[in-house]
Structures are given as C-alpha cells and as structure tokens.
C-alpha cells in the first residue's frame, strides 16, 4: 500500500513529530554548543575552544562532588538492587504469599509519594535520631527511593521468565539455591542489570533529597551544579553539563541495549 493512500496516516503528523524532536533536543544542543565558546560571556560567540573543559576538570570542588555522588550512588544501588531482587523473587515466584498486593505497594511506596515529602520525612527522621554524617544520611535516603526503580525491571523480567525451567531444575534434584544460581539468576540477569542501572542513574541525578539533606560535607553533583547556576550562567557550567550528558547518554545506551536482549 502506498503511504499516501494508507488510511491510518494523518497529514501533518510527520511534520509535527519532526518539530517535536527538534524541540526535545534543541535546549540540550544549545548547552553543548556554548560549552565550546571561548568567550567568557555565554551567549557571545568568541570562537571554538576547549578551555572550559580543562577548567572544569581541574575544578577540585567539582571533582569532590562527583566522588561524593558516585560513593552514594554505588552504596544505594548495591543495597537497593539486592533487597529488590529478594522482594521480587517472593512477590513473583513465592507460593502462598500472604498480602502479596500490599507487599508490592509497600515496595513501590516511594513512587506514590511526591519526592519532596519523602525528603522532608528523611530530614525530620535524621534530626530526631541526631544523625550528622552527611554521606550516611544520603546513602540511607537514596537506598529507600531507589528500591522501586530497581524492583520494577527485575519483576518484569521474572514475570516474563518460564517458571517451568526452575521446576525442571528442582525435579533434577537441584537445591533451591542451586536452581536459583544456575537457572533463575542467569535468566533474569538483564532485568537485574537494568534495575541496578536505573537505580544508579536515579541516585546520581537526585536533587530534591540531596539538597534538603545537604549538610555534614556531602555535596552531591546536582547540588553543586545548582549552586553554580545560582551564581549565574557560565561557560564552565556548560562544559560540566555536557560532560554529564555524555555520561548519561553512555549509560542510557548500555541499558537500552541490554533490555533489548532476548
């Protein structure tokens, strides 16, 4: 059938979609473009330069913010992925699980509440406990809101997996642990991986919680960038943003490719 006569096509949708993608990518492109600007004033083009990248990479406050963010993200990702995997195995595979629906809602609770409310809850909790270590506070708070993001892809993968494979392993006298390690885990690994990836990105990107709890020497990357934006637009800020985008695109692409694996 020719596209012109295809009754499912609507005139103008194509052009509209192209304009939409331009809109989606224009702001990001503007940041990248101006990061190569030699001029100190962002919107006055003064020629191509990598100067702001070298300034950014030798900025010790930035490097320490990246280190803080990475440390918190690694802790939060590890714990949230492990506990989410345990919960998903019970919720999807468990027999005679009482309160299955409620258990699932509890795991997904951080998705149902606005993040600022969850952040306020953490702030009050830590102030009551007298906890002052900034890294520890953020690691705990990030673990909590990363759990549903790790949980959902793992659960989806488990639901898509043939339960008979596990049964077969058990019928062949594999212990529960061996069946899990040799059959279930390898099959759901892409789900575990994309869950961990999502948790990692959510933690690295978090601003609301990290900003509200910001004290005790735990300034994360988004909180540091926020303080730079408050000081005003600068070419160095554009260079930092471009580097962050580069890292996110790399992560997103890896996650996307792993998900596509059958």
């Amino acid at each position: 059938m020719k596209s012109g006569s295809d009754v499912r096509r609507y005139p103008g949708f194509g052009l509209f979609s192209i304009l939409f993608f331009v809109y989606l990518y224009l702001p990001i492109s503007v940041v990248i473009f101006y990061s190569f600007n030699a001029n100190r004033i962002v919107s006055n083009w003064g020629g191509f330069s990598l100067h702001w990248y070298t300034t950014a990479l030798s900025n010790s406050a930035l490097v320490s913010a990246v280190k803080t963010s990475l440390l918190i993200a690694v802790i939060a990702t590890t714990i949230s992925t492990i506990v989410a995997l345990m919960a998903a195995l019970v919720i999807v595979r468990g027999r005679d699980v009482r309160f299955r629906r409620i258990s699932e809602t509890i795991v997904n609770l951080p998705l149902l509440l606005p993040e600022i409310v969850v952040a306020v809850a953490s702030l009050i909790l830590f102030s009551q406990l007298g906890l002052v270590n900034g890294i520890m506070k953020l690691a705990i708070a990030h673990t909590t809101f990363c759990i549903p993001f790790a949980f959902l892809p793992i659960r989806a993968r488990l639901q898509g997996m043939d339960a008979n494979l596990e049964e077969a392993a058990r019928d062949l006298y594999a212990s529960a642990w061996v069946a899990f390690r040799r059959v279930t885990l390898p099959l759901i690994l892409p789900g575990v991986f994309s869950g961990a990836m999502l948790a990692f990105v959510i933690s690295m990107d978090d601003f609301i919680t990290s900003n509200l709890l910001n004290s005790g020497g735990a300034t994360t990357l988004p909180v540091y960038i926020f303080s730079l934006i408050k000081q005003g637009v600068s070419p160095q800020l554009n260079a930092i943003s471009t580097l962050i985008m580069l890292a996110s695109v790399a992560l997103a692409t890896i996650a996307f490719l792993v998900q596509r694996q059958k």
Binding site: D205, I225, F226, I244, S248
Partner: peptide, 15 residues
Amino acid sequence: PFWVSMIVRVYSWII
C-alpha cells in the same frame, strides 16, 4: 532526555 540530568535540562532553558 529522561536519562539526562534533570537539573541540566532545566538549566538549558535559562540559557
């Protein structure tokens, strides 16, 4: 764009 840092995306509109 959803994977790209939220703060960077909002910042781009300031420019």
